[in-house]
Design a protein around this nucleic acid. Sequence first.
RNA 1: GAUCUGUUAGCUCAGUCGGUAGAGCAACGGCCUUUUAAGCCGUGGGUCUUGGGUUCGAGUCCCAAACAGAUCACCA
Length: 505
Amino acid sequence: MLHLSEQEIIRRQYLDEFRNLGIDPYPAAMFDVTTLASEIKDGFDIHPDQFKNIRIAGRIMSKRIMGKAAFAEIQDSSGRIQAYINRDLICPNDNKELYNTVFKKLCDIGDFVGLEGYAFRTQTGELSIHVSEFKFLSKSLHPLPIVKTDADGKIHDAFTDPEQRYRKRYVDLIVNPHVKETFIKRSRLINSMRNYFNSKGWLEVETPVLQSIHGGAAARPFKTHHNALDMQLYLRIANELYLKRLIVGGFDGVYEFGKMFRNEGMDRTHNPEFTSMEIYIAYKDYLWMMEMVEDCLQTVVNEVCGSPICSISGKEINFSKPYLRLSMYEAIEKYAGIDVAQSDESTLRNYCRNNRIEIEDNMAWGKLVDTIFSDKVESNLIQPTYIIDYPLEMTPLAKKHRSKEGLVERFELYVNGKEIANAYSELNDPIDQRNRLEEQLNLAARGDEEAMVMDEDFVHALEYGMPPTSGLGIGIDRLTMMITGQEAIQEVLFFPQMKPESKQG
RNA sequence: GAUCUGUUAGCUCAGUCGGUAGAGCAACGGCCUUUUAAGCCGUGGGUCUUGGGUUCGAGUCCCAAACAGAUCACCA
C-alpha cells in the first residue's frame, strides 16, 4: 500500500501537468554536460573566458524566486553552484510558460534540470550561472530534507538521524556532502593500495566466497545451501587458505580485496560482512612484511590524505614509518605488569580474577594471554604499533619462531587502540600444520565455537611444498575509519546491515 | 544477548500538573527582475512507532513489542 503525504501527492499531480504541457518529466535524450560546478568554482577567476558557454546539470537544492527572476542552487556530482534564472532570458517570446509554470511551479527541490548559459558573479559576489536555456531532466517524487547553512556556517535542520541516514543512504549522500567525501576517500584508499601492490608486480586474484570448509580464521560462519549439489556451504570467514594454495601453485605474490562474512555480534566496529585485503608473498618473512606494510601505509595515507597524519577522536595518528615494535609479552608486561612467559594457566586465571577480567572455564593458556592483552594493552596502542611474537596456541597457521620457544612469527598492527592488520611468517611445514589443526579440533571439543576446522585439501597442498611465505590481512573498513576520522563502521559502509523496518499495524 | 536512552507534520524539534497537538523550514495561493538560512501576506498538512492497561479523559502515567543509538558481552 502506498501512503502518500500531501507533498507527494502534489508532486505526482505535477507529472500530469508536465505531460499536459507536452513536456516529458523523464526525457530519454541525453543532456550534454560540459562543465561541473567544481570546475567553475576552481577555474572562473583564473580563466573567466572558458565559462562563457557552458552546460551543467544537477538537482535543484534550493529556489529563491523574486517575481520575474529567481535563484536556484544546482547540485551535481562535484558540488553546488547557484543559477540565475531570468524570465525574459529563458522565455524570449511572449509565451512565458517555461518560467511561470514549468520552473516556478512544477520544479521542486530534488528535481534534475539541465542549464545552459555563462558563469558570472552577482552583485553580492556569488558565482552563478546566467541561464539562457532551461531543460527539465527528471522529477523527484519525495521531498528531501532541507539542510541549510547560514552566514556563520551554522547548519540548520541537519539530516542526522543515523537510522534514517543508513536506511536511506541515497538521501544521506544527496544532502550531506561530507558523507560523499568519506566514501570517495574509501575508494581512493583501495585504489592507492592496489596501485602500490601492482607496482611491485603482485597479482590481484579472486578466490571462492562459497566454501565447503570455512578455514583461515577463528570465527562463526554463515551457512547456506547449494540446491543442485544438495550440500551445505559456508560464506567465507577468510580467504587465507586459498591464497596459500596459489603460492603453492607458483605465484610469487597474490592479493585479494574481498568481502568476509562472520556470524557474530554487530556494533560500531563490526558489520556481518566486511572488506579485508589479504596478501601473500613468497620467499619473505614477517620481518620483511612489517617493512612493506609501513611503507605501503605511509604511501597510501599520503596519497589519500595529502599527509601521513590523520586525526580521529581528537587524536593525531602519524602513519610515517617506521612503526614501534613491541613483543606481545613486553606489551603485557608494560601495560598489565605481569610476566606471562613465567606464568602458568592457574597464575593467569588468578591475575584475571584479581583484575576483574572476565574469563571462562574453557579458556586455555593462549586464550587467557589474549584476553589479558585485549583488556589491558590494546587501548594504549594509539600510534601505529606492531605487536610481535604471539603464543603458539593462539595461532595455528603461523610458523614457529626461529629462536623463541613457544612463540610464532606473527605481528598485528594496532592503530588508535584497534587491530587493523595481522600477519605471519606462514606455516609451510605440512606435518606441523596437520598437528596444529588437530589441536584446534581439541579446542573445539573443549567448547571453543571459533576453533578452526581441518581442511584436508589445504594440508594436502602444503604437502606438495610451499616456499617460505609471508602473509598479511588488513581490515579495510577499519583503516578507512582511521583516515576519515569516523568512529563507526556504519559510516564507512554505504549500506550497513540493518534489521528491516517493521511494517506491522 | 544485557542495560540505558530515543521514536510527535516531508525535515529539525517543542509539547508544562493527564484535558482531543505547536514552531521554523518544506508545501499550497498571492506580491516581488542580482537573491542567498531571501523577504512580505494568506492557507493546508498529524494512525503522536505498534499493541494492551489505568482513567470520565493519555502524545503525556503503567506493561509489552518493533526499530535505532550509546554502553557492555562476543569478535576483526
